[in-house]
Design a binder for these strands. Structure first.
Lengths: 259, 259
DNA sequence: ACATAAATCCCTAAAAATGAGATTATTGTT
DNA sequence: AACAATAATCTCATTTTTAGGGATTTATGT
C-alpha cells in the first residue's frame, strides 16, 4: 500500500508510522493489509521491533507501541536543548498568568508540542505534550509560518488554503501571504478560538541559528480572562521568551554542546 | 563492536540503543567506532532514522533522539492498558498520602517507570517516568522478583547477588531465595532507603493474565513521615491497588481490547 | 482430544546492502 | 574572499540479505 520499496530499515520503521491517535493498536493481519508486506516478512519485522522494545504485543489484543518509547522519551527530555532551555520560560509565563504555556517544535511538515506547563486547573487547551497540532490554524502554526522564507511558505499556504481562508486570513495565496507578513512585522501571532473555542493563543517564534524558526513558544489563556491590553502585555513576554530561548540555543550551537 | 550481523533493521535500530543517560549525544564518528559500521552505511542509517523523526541532528552537536519519540510517547500513554487502568490508583494513593506513586513495568531484563503521580513538592524519589531502575535493590524490584517462578528467579538472583547481599537479603542464592519467598507470602515488598536515602518504598505486583507479574505499583514516601503502622496501612492500599489493576488488565484481555 | 487460527520455518531467485575510495558539501580560518 | 580541513554523500561491483510462496508447527478455543 505504501511505497517503501527497497530498504528494510525504512520498511521496518514504517510500521511505527501507522500508529496514530485513532489507531493505537494493530493486528498482524491489519498491518499486512495496510503495508502490503507478506506474512513472514511482517512477522520478522515485528519480532525485531518487539525485541527492541519499540512494540509490545499483548496476547488477545494486537501490537501497540512498546516501553522503549518511554525510555527514549525520558532521554529526549534530558537532551533536547529546546526543552532544557525553554522550561524555565514556560514556568515564568505560567506563574505570571493563569494559562498554559507550550513549546512547539516544527518537524517534517508537522508541529508538535514538546513541553508544556500550566497554572490552571482545567486546561481547555487540548494539545498536551506529544500531540501533533494542526498546521493551518492557531497562533502557534501562524507564528511558525509567518517567519518562514517565501519559498517554503507559499507551498504551505497552498496546502492549507482552506483552513487559512476559513479563519479570515485571506482568499488568495497572496492575501494570506500579506497577512502573514503583518504577523512577521508584529513579531508574534494571536488567535482567538481558532483551535479551541474560547481560548486565546499568543505565540512567538524560536530560532536555532538559521533563518527559519525551529519552534514556537506559546501561551493559551481563557478568552474571558483577557482584554486587549492584557494580550499586549502577554505577547511582549512571549516574544521576550522566544528571543531568550533563541539566544540560548544559538549560544549552545556556537560553543558546541556543553554538558 | 556489537554483533548485529545480517539484519539491516536490527542494525539500524541498534543505533537507538546507544543513547543513554550518560550519553545523550553521538557524533557519526563515535557511532562508527561504537557500532563498527562503515561510514556510508552509518550515514544511510542515520538519514533514515532522522527522516523517521527518531533522531535529530543539530549542526554543531551530534545526533540526539528526535521528536517522533515525543509523539510516540503520547500515543503510548493513550494505548497502554497498564497506564490507563493504573492512573486513577496512583491518584488515589497520592491523595491519601504525601508520597510519590509509581507504576513500574518489567521489560526485557529491566524495570522502567511508566507512570507516576506525586503529592509532595520536592520529590526525593529519583525515578521519574522513563528512567530505568536498578534491578537488585528497592521495593519495586523486589516486588517483581519475589513473584517470579523459580526458574526465572534464580538466574536473576545470581546476576544481582552483590546488591542483594549488601541490602541484607542473604549471603547465598538460597538465602536470598528464602527471603524473597517471605516477600511473596506477605504479598508486598518494603524497602528502607535502598534506592534513595531516607525514602521508604512499598510495592506490590501487578499481573496481566499469566503467572509472572508484568508490573509493580509502588509508593515512595519520606521515612520520617511514617511509622510501622502507617506502613502497614499504606501497604494494604498498595496491595489493593495492585490487585485491582491486575483485575482490570485481565478483564481487558478476556474481552479483547475495548476502545 | 479436536478444529481453527496464528506464527514460524524452509528455501532459492531476485533484490538490496555493503564498503572502499572518490567526490562533493560544509564549515572554519587566515 | 580564497583556502584548508572536515564532514557528508556518491558510485559501483560484489556479497549478503531479503522476500515471500507454500508447508509446518505452535497456540488457541471448543
Amino acid at each position: 500500500m505504501t511505497e517503501n520499496a527497497g530498504n528494510s530499515l525504512k520498511r521496518g520503521l514504517a510500521i511505527l508510522e501507522v500508529f496514530s491517535e485513532d489507531r493505537l493498536e494493530w493486528t498482524p493481519e491489519e498491518l499486512m493489509e495496510k503495508l502490503g508486506y507478506s506474512r513472514p516478512t511482517l512477522y520478522r519485522y515485528l519480532k525485531t521491533l518487539r525485541e527492541a522494545g519499540l512494540l509490545s504485543s499483548s496476547a488477545n489484543a494486537g501490537f501497540t507501541l512498546g516501553p522503549k518509547v518511554v525510555e527514549m522519551d525520558f532521554l529526549l527530555r534530558k537532551s533536547d536543548a529546546l526543552i532544557l532551555n525553554g522550561q524555565k520560560h514556560l514556568k515564568n509565563l505560567t506563574e505570571r498568568y493563569a494559562c498554559t504555556a507550550l513549546l512547539v517544535r516544527r518537524y517534517g511538515g508537522r508541529i508538535l508540542c514538546v513541553a508544556s506547563e500550566r497554572s490552571v486547573a482545567n486546561p481547555r487547551s487540548s494539545y498536551p505534550r506529544g500531540r501533533p497540532m494542526p498546521l493551518g490554524r492557531g497562533a502557534i502554526a501562524r507564528s511558525l509560518m509567518a517567519f518562514l522564507p517565501r519559498r517554503q511558505l507559499v507551498p504551505m499556504i497552498e496546502r492549507h488554503m482552506e483552513d487559512l481562508r476559513s479563519i479570515g486570513l485571506g482568499n488568495t495565496v497572496e492575501e494570506v501571504y500579506e497577512s502573514l507578513r503583518r504577523v512577521k512585522r508584529a513579531g508574534y501571532a494571536v488567535a482567538f478560538g481558532e483551535v479551541t473555542p474560547g481560548v486565546v493563543g499568543i505565540a512567538a517564534p524560536v530560532y536555532d541559528a538559521g533563518r527559519s524558526p525551529v519552534a514556537s513558544v506559546c501561551v493559551t489563556i481563557a478568552g474571558h480572562l483577557v482584554n486587549g491590553n492584557d494580550i499586549d502585555e502577554i505577547s511582549a513576554h512571549v516574544r521576550q521568551a522566544g528571543r531568550e530561548i533563541s539566544e540560548a540555543l544559538s549560544l549552545e550551537r556556537e560553543n558546541g554542546k556543553v554538558g
